[in-house]
Computed example of a mutant assay.
Amino acid sequence: MDQNFTVSAKTAVRTLRRDLAALGLDVNHSAALELLAHQAGFRDWNTATASATGPAGQLGAPVPVLRVQDGAAALEFYTAVLGFTCLWEHRFEPDLPLYARVRRDDAELDLSEHCGDGTPGTAVWVPVRDVRELRRELSPRLDPRQFPGVEDDAPGGPTTTVLDPFGNSLRSCER
Rank of each mutant, 00 (worst) to 15 (best):
residue 2 D to H: 12
residue 3 Q to F: 10
residue 3 Q to D: 12
residue 7 V to F: 13
residue 10 K to C: 08
residue 12 A to M: 10
residue 12 A to C: 07
residue 14 R to S: 10
residue 21 A to Q: 15
residue 21 A to K: 15
residue 21 A to S: 15
residue 21 A to E: 06
residue 21 A to D: 07
residue 23 L to V: 08
residue 25 L to Q: 15
residue 26 D to N: 15
residue 26 D to C: 07
residue 27 V to S: 07
residue 28 N to W: 02
residue 32 A to S: 15
residue 34 E to S: 14
residue 36 L to W: 09
residue 37 A to L: 05
residue 37 A to T: 12
residue 37 A to H: 11
residue 38 H to N: 12
residue 38 H to R: 15
residue 40 A to T: 05
residue 41 G to Y: 08
residue 41 G to W: 09
residue 42 F to T: 04
residue 43 R to Q: 09
residue 44 D to Q: 13
residue 44 D to S: 11
residue 44 D to G: 13
residue 47 T to E: 10
residue 49 T to E: 15
residue 51 S to Y: 12
residue 52 A to C: 15
residue 52 A to H: 09
residue 52 A to I: 12
residue 52 A to S: 15
residue 53 T to D: 14
residue 53 T to Y: 03
residue 53 T to A: 13
residue 54 G to N: 13
residue 55 P to M: 00
residue 56 A to K: 03
residue 57 G to R: 10
residue 57 G to W: 04
residue 57 G to Y: 05
residue 59 L to E: 11
residue 61 A to P: 08
residue 61 A to F: 00
residue 61 A to W: 01
residue 62 P to L: 03
residue 62 P to M: 00
residue 63 V to I: 14
residue 63 V to P: 10
residue 64 P to A: 09
residue 66 L to R: 06
residue 66 L to Q: 11
residue 67 R to K: 14
residue 70 D to F: 03
residue 73 A to M: 05
residue 75 L to E: 11
residue 76 E to T: 09
residue 76 E to L: 06
residue 77 F to W: 04
residue 79 T to R: 02
residue 79 T to S: 04
residue 80 A to P: 03
residue 80 A to R: 10
residue 85 T to M: 01
residue 86 C to D: 06
residue 87 L to N: 11
residue 88 W to A: 11
residue 90 H to I: 05
residue 90 H to N: 14
residue 91 R to A: 03
residue 92 F to W: 14
residue 92 F to R: 13
residue 97 P to K: 14
residue 98 L to R: 14
residue 98 L to P: 01
residue 99 Y to S: 10
residue 99 Y to Q: 12
residue 101 R to W: 03
residue 101 R to T: 09
residue 103 R to S: 07
residue 105 D to E: 14
residue 106 D to Y: 07
residue 107 A to D: 14
residue 109 L to F: 02
residue 109 L to Y: 02
residue 110 D to A: 10
residue 111 L to F: 03
residue 111 L to I: 04
residue 112 S to L: 12
residue 119 T to I: 09
residue 122 T to G: 08
residue 123 A to W: 06
residue 124 V to Y: 02
residue 126 V to W: 08
residue 130 D to G: 05
residue 131 V to L: 01
residue 133 E to L: 06
residue 133 E to C: 01
residue 135 R to M: 08
residue 136 R to G: 03
residue 136 R to M: 01
residue 136 R to L: 01
residue 138 L to D: 12
residue 138 L to F: 06
residue 139 S to D: 04
residue 143 D to K: 09
residue 143 D to W: 02
residue 143 D to P: 03
residue 145 R to L: 05
residue 145 R to V: 00
residue 145 R to M: 01
residue 146 Q to G: 13
residue 148 P to W: 01
residue 148 P to D: 06
residue 149 G to C: 07
residue 149 G to D: 04
residue 149 G to R: 10
residue 149 G to M: 08
residue 149 G to H: 12
residue 153 D to L: 06
residue 155 P to H: 00
residue 157 G to T: 07
residue 157 G to A: 05
residue 162 V to H: 05
residue 163 L to Q: 12
residue 163 L to H: 10
residue 164 D to H: 05
residue 166 F to I: 00
residue 166 F to S: 04
residue 167 G to L: 08
residue 168 N to I: 03
residue 168 N to L: 04
residue 168 N to C: 06
residue 170 L to F: 03
residue 171 R to E: 14
residue 174 E to I: 00
